[in-house]
């Protein structure tokens, strides 16, 4: 058991350290977030009929940033596969399952770490009304982060091709954010988009986060947390099983 935990910590630590490789990417992501809120959010808030839209938008765009950072592990795994690092990882005296579970945990944790500055910005901007409510909502963010890392691992394990991963992640990125309540309340969506957005984990994370910040929310916090938990468990399990099965035998292109 001791070895299991030691190895797990080692794998998670490696993934967290890899964050430092992406200094420029992170700075760019933070600046993108900052400009989205300060320019786009502020400008559009003068046009929309929703009151206090800038705070609504800032909370949503944080969830979008967390989502896209969590998905980034797909590119990492893809690159490792292309450069033969997978074979190196397989040669290590670490249990295969520990290696894979560690990657899933590391992927989720580093997304939270990588988005800390935007999170702090949002907390300062909107303010914290009730710390316990916020902590409850933060569990939802953690679940989203782990679930998205699981989804990214699933996609990269199934496709095994850099080009296909790029196109699918681009398409998912385009639609998953816009078909959620990241940018706008469900009440303003046409029924066909609203129906899809109910199934979208980004909707539940956004609503839960807004609720945690004391902003008007369209969701039920318990239901949203349940959906996010189900999403995290299913995606992580599928991701781990597929990655484990596909890791061996090469075939990554």
């Amino acid at each position: 058991m001791r070895t299991f935990i030691d190895h797990l910590v080692l794998v998670v630590e490696r993934d967290l350290r890899m964050l430092l490789q992406y200094k420029l990417f992170l700075v760019l992501r933070w600046l993108w977030f900052f400009m989205q809120v300060v320019i786009f959010g502020l400008a559009i808030s003068y046009l929309v009929v929703v009151s206090d839209y800038i705070n609504y938008y800032a909370a949503g765009i944080y969830v979008a940033t967390l989502y896209s950072t969590s998905m980034f592990i797909a590119f990492d795994i893809q690159e490792e596969a292309e450069h033969g690092v997978v074979d190196y990882l397989l040669s290590l005296p670490i249990n295969r399952r520990v290696l894979i579970v560690g990657r899933a945990i590391g992927g989720g944790l580093r997304s939270i770490l990588a988005t800390l500055p935007p999170l702090i910005f949002v907390l300062i901007m909107i303010g914290v009304r009730d710390i316990l409510t916020l902590l409850y909502a933060s569990i939802g963010l953690l679940l989203l982060s782990f679930g998205m890392a699981g989804l990214a691992i699933t996609i990269v394990s199934v496709l095994k091709s850099g080009d296909k991963v790029d196109i699918l992640l681009g398409a998912i990125d385009a639609f998953i954010i816009r078909l959620s309540t990241v940018f706008y309340p469900r009440a303003f969506m046409p029924p066909y988009y609203s129906a899809i957005s109910v199934l979208n984990p980004l909707t539940h994370a956004s609503e839960l986060f807004r609720w945690g910040l004391g902003l008007p929310s369209e969701g039920d916090p318990i239901f949203s947390l349940f959906i996010l938990l189900a999403f995290m468990l299913s995606m992580t399990t599928v991701g781990i099983l597929l990655y484990e099965r596909r890791m061996e035998g090469g075939g990554w292109t």
């Binding site: 559009i44 046009l47 929703v50 816009r178 078909l179 940018f183 303003f188 969506m189 046409p190 988009y193």
Partner: peptide, 14 residues
């Protein structure tokens, strides 16, 4: 997605 989702929903909001 910008045209057929974002623009349509923002049309209802603006």
């Amino acid at each position: 997605a910008d045209i057929f989702i974002l623009a349509i929903v923002f049309t209802n909001l603006i």
